[in-house]
Design a binder for these strands. Structure first.
Lengths: 341, 341
DNA sequence: TTTCTTTTGATAGACGCCTATCAAGAATTG
DNA sequence: CAATTCTTGATAGGCGTCTATCAAAAGAAA
């Protein structure tokens, strides 16, 4: 049961391998009827080019770039680590991944970065701010033939070919459902802390959370959103003030980074057992707080999965292979104390 | 930045490619000091053999076999589908996956199957019953040079090299925590329905569930375990009886298959809103019931992930590559209505 | 030292595809 | 009809590794 090769196709079609190759790779002018013959032979033999051999022969490296935010946000630091780890592993597969750190929250800066790196890479993965200027830069890349995927935060209206990340409004809804169920009919106030609402992911989470909380749990009162700017010290201050101002606070949903600030404010207040605290992103701090009981639920997106998915998509696009959508769907992880990995 | 090849290594070591190859593939007698020289050169150059080229050259197919239970259990049917889908995709990578359906619940039958298929495959993935006879069969395979991984259900004491599945006791604990939190201090009875306790995965889930429920939620009374034999009709009967016998039943944890039976019993009783129902495995039936509110939480293991993980491990072992443990860890998924994929 | 055994070198031919070139055949144009 | 263009064929060489063979060199035994 030898593999069917390009030669078998040529023979079947009564043509030469050269011609079959021309058809397969759109290399030169071929008459329509000839193309037809080749395609028929391919269908008959169910021929599938050997990707391994193709990549070996092309001898070409895949150059990708991951554009991530600078800064000391722990999620992004971990994300960067994961990218590096993936890069190290992928070298053996002829994949070279560069890391570009930039101020993602500043549209002109991010756009400038994207504009700059265009000609060097086959594909770019970017944590994108949803801003017209950024969208334009993404479209510019695509127009110049660079494959673009967004990660973590999406720009749906752009020409990016894929988004490797979670649906943030669903994440917010999930948080609300768990909050409501954990509070089981109790009456009281719920606070929401966001990093910054100018980030699409944060505002979408908030949107989903509000939607479910207001409709499904009328016993709960949602307080006005507070901003932590993804800074844990600020998050701590904000939380302390919140706790002081509302003795009947029974829930906190932290949409962004800075989870540790909320943890320490809660622990200092001694009310960690009376307040259901749901937060995003699993890391050393949140893990410990979850085990201790200060955090009740962590909603997470798996950085490794997102990165590997992004790379798979970039590679598939690079050699015009198919993308299996179901496989690339990033799930929203829910962690309680007992199913921590 | 051309790739470092086997030739570079040979040159660096002052030896011939033939000798380097002998060292790399343990092909023939090589003096220890020569081996040393080669290894040093490899280290210096940080040489990594090109797996693509190697596989192309070897021209060898990977033959794997998945041994799954026969029967009409929906999880296993889906599992089989996923195996077939994966197999179809992997043909292009020189991986041939056969499917062997057998009565996994009968130790001698399963063992006989394992004994029989030994010589044909490079690797075997098996849904294993934890039984001495099966363990022996697994060890026999391993001794004959076949790589064995267990999936879904493990035999930890065997020589299998990997388990691609979730930690079932953690899954049970997770269910208990969610049950306890959802019930928020209410007093009442909780029922547990298992497929069959002779399966390791079911009894482990039960164990984890009981452990957490008894220790953390003294307000809840756990009723004696009921067995559904993974049959939904029986599950329905059992559940109806349970509901009738205990008007103060406020929670059900269904450890095995047959979720639909529990759903219909609950819906017929009209008590679906008063009973927190947590079950395993996401499928069309459970998905609908979760959306409708009859099911409150689904705990899931992703069949596709487990299969792909098993295949990755089998391939890695087949060409003596490394296994990245962190990547192969199968997570316990929690689904509420809002984070359904 | 000679002979035999063990270790190494050199090299060719796969594996399946890509790239490029040159010549031959077919179709088009004037 | 010849001259020109467009399509195809044939073929070589390469990608990095494996496998196999034969000859050459080195070591051990006589």
């Amino acid at each position: 049961m030898a593999r069917t090769t390009i030669e078998d196709v040529a023979q079947k079609a009564g043509l030469s391998v050269a011609t079959v190759d021309r058809v397969l790779n759109g290399r030169a002018a071929v008459r329509p009827q000839t193309t037809e013959r080749v395609e028929k032979a391919i269908r008959l033999l169910n021929y599938q080019p050997d990707r391994l051999a193709a990549r070996l022969a092309r001898g070409r490296d895949y150059h990708f770039c991951f554009v991530l935010p600078v800064g000391n946000n722990s999620f992004m630091i971990e994300f960067g680590e994961e990218v590096r780890a993936t890069a190290a592993r992928m070298v053996h597969e002829r994949v070279i991944i560069d890391l570009e750190l930039t101020d993602v929250f500043d549209a002109p800066t991010l756009a400038a970065t994207l504009d700059r790196i265009g000609d060097v890479y086959d594909g770019v993965a970017v944590v994108a701010l949803d801003h017209p200027r950024v969208k334009e830069a993404i479209n510019g890349l695509v127009d110049r033939g660079v494959t673009v995927v967004t990660i973590v935060s999406d720009v749906p209206s752009s020409k990016r070919c894929h988004y490797a990340g979670i649906e943030n409004s669903s994440a917010g809804r999930t948080a609300a459902t768990l909050m409501g169920r954990y509070l089981g009919g109790k009456h009281g106030k719920v606070g929401l802390i966001a990093g910054s609402l100018s980030l699409r992911d944060h505002s979408e989470r908030r949107f989903g959370f509000e939607q479910v909380l207001l409709h499904e749990f009328p016993n709960l009162t949602l307080l006005p959103v507070l901003e932590s700017r993804d800074d844990w010290q600020r998050a701590e201050t904000v939380t302390s003030d919140l706790l002081a101002a509302h003795p009947d606070l029974i829930g906190i949903y932290n949409v962004g980074a800075g989870a540790r600030g909320v943890v320490s404010a809660l622990e200092k207040s001694g009310r960690q057992d009376k307040v259901v605290y749901i937060t995003h992103e699993l890391n050393d701090v949140t893990r410990r707080a979850l085990v201790d009981g200060t955090i009740d639920v962590i909603i997470n997106q798996n950085a490794g999965h997102e990165i590997r998915s992004a790379v798979r998509v970039l590679m598939a696009k690079a050699d015009k292979g198919p993308v299996i959508e179901a496989m690339e769907k990033i799930r929203i992880d829910i962690f309680v104390r007992d199913n921590l990995p």
